[in-house]
Structure formats: C-alpha cells, structure tokens
C-alpha cells in the first residue's frame, strides 16, 4: 500500500479494479482510457479494450491523444470500420462493459454531454453524444468515472444525452432495454453503486481520508450512503507505479514539438 497518491490517481486505480480479465470493454476517451489501460497492465492482461474508432483488442503502450492514434490500430487484434463497430460489435451485444465519462451526471446515472442550458439557446455547446447514447443502452453494463463537482453532479441534468436509469426503478425495462445500465460510479472521492430497487447511486466506499461531508460538499444532490460505508483500499505500490509509468510514457511520447510553423 502507498499513502502518497492524489485523488485523481485513486479514482483511476479504483476504476481499473472494477474491470475483469474476461471483460470486453468499450473505452471512453479521457479518464476511462487511463483506468482501462491500468487494468490491462496489472490484474487484467487479457482484457479486450475497444475504442470507437474500430480498434478491437488494442494494447497501447501510451494513452492515445485521440481515438485516431495509429498505435491503437497497430496494437489491436483487428481494426474494423466504424459502421461495423457500432452494428456488429456494440449493437450485436459483444460488449460487456461500456466505460463512460460525463460533463453532467444525475443520481440515476443519466449523462449529459450535449449542452449546458437550453438545447436551442445553449449557454455552452458541448461536443455531443458521439457513441455514448448507444454504448449506454447496448453494453452489458455501464461504469462511469468523473471528478466530483457541484457543476458536474447535479439534481437535474440539462439534457439526457445517454440514458442511465431514467427516474429510477424499472425505467430501463419500460423502454425495452435488457442491459443493466449504470452499475458503478467511481469518483475522486468514492465508489458508488445503484440501490437495487430505486437505482439511485449510493456511496458504498470512500477513498482513504475522505469524509461524508467531503462527498456531499461536491455533489449537487443529497447523497445516500450505504449502511456500512467501506474504505477503498489505497493504491498498491504496483498499481501506482503502473499508472505513473503510463502517464510518464504518455507525456514523453506526446511532447515532441512541432516545427511545421502552420500555426505560427
């Protein structure tokens, strides 16, 4: 165990632990990408990582700049065209875990990555859903990872880009979905799981040194805590070294300066 780690590192490592060796994981870019690759480099070497650019079973040595990185393709078992990716592999039910980030999240795991404010007159136009709406409905289950903020974890999201549990209960089944939806939320402070009946995210574990007050202060809804909130095991020396080495390799690989002058 190590005591010298940041909340970000704890979040990534806690997220990596949720992935299993036999998972087929559709990887969102950003925080999910780091967690998925730490899992692959530690306890889940055989995990199949899929990026939406069509790379199946990819094993990059550094985190990609974007989903178009050549290394994702070069290290993959196969690279398929994007229509095939979404039709055969995601819609076909081959993906066990969809790993997503969120700009805005509510207590039922509904995600907004479309707009802040009104859709037609947005305060902030965000990039949009990309693959997420169908990743959320077609993956066997959904893991979500994000840093806690009052702006991000809100009572009501401005736009439902990707459906989680709707207003809770059996909303997914009512829409004809047979997949589990969000089953895990990993933040920089805690691990959350949905209540089996209401589907509201409930804190089941807090990271070392985190208090219930910390969790509530950075969450826009009234937080439910499990009866016995556990302490997330601190990162092991191996986990931390793996993550830091990955980040260092990534930084070095992406630091090459341009001399093209195109933007000079």
């Amino acid at each position: 165990m190590s005591n010298d780690f940041t909340p970000d590192e704890m979040m990534t490592i806690a997220a990596s632990r949720a992935l299993k060796n036999d998972d087929v994981c559709f990887v969102g870019i950003g925080a999910p990408s780091a967690a998925c690759n730490v899992a692959r480099l530690t306890h889940a070497p055989e995990i199949t990582l899929i990026y939406e650019s069509g790379t199946i079973g990819t094993a990059p040595s550094v985190l990609p700049l974007s989903i178009g990185d050549g290394e994702l393709c070069e290290t993959a078992v196969s690279t398929v065209a994007v229509p095939e990716m979404f039709r055969y592999w995601l819609q076909g039910g081959r993906v066990t875990i969809g790993f997503l980030g969120a700009a805005q999240l509510d207590r039922f795991g509904n995600i907004n990555t479309t707009v802040i404010g009104d859709y037609d007159r947005p305060k902030i136009r965000l990039p949009g859903g990309g693959g997420a709406p169908e990743i959320a409905s077609s993956s066997g289950e959904i893991y979500i990872t994000m840093k806690q903020t009052l702006r991000g974890m809100v009572e009501k999201i401005d736009f439902v880009t990707s459906f989680g549990h709707g207003t809770g209960g059996d909303d997914r089944q009512k829409l004809g979905m047979t997949t589990l939806g969000p089953t895990l939320l990993i933040t920089d402070l805690a691990v959350w799981r949905p209540d089996p009946v209401t589907k509201e995210f409930t804190v089941v574990s807090m990271h070392p040194g985190v208090t219930k007050e910390n969790v509530q202060a950075t969450c826009g809804w009234t937080v439910k805590f499990a009866d016995d909130v556990e302490v997330t095991p601190a990162p092991s020396v191996l986990e931390l070294k793996t993550l830091r080495d990955l980040k260092a390799r990534t930084k070095a690989a992406h630091a090459a300066p341009s001399t093209s002058g195109a933007n000079a």
Binding site: F86, R87, Q91, T114, Y119, D120, G129, P133, E134, A136, S137, S138, F159, V160, T161, S162, F163, G166, D171, R172, L175, G176, M177
Partner: peptide, 13 residues
C-alpha cells in the same frame, strides 16, 4: 434502421 436512441433526448430535438 438500428437499435438506438433509447431514452436519449436527441430524439426530441
């Protein structure tokens, strides 16, 4: 034709 937009608000806008 595909299985998609389930519960997604884009279908409303």
């Amino acid at each position: 034709v595909f299985r998609g937009y389930l519960g997604a608000e884009l279908a409303k806008v």
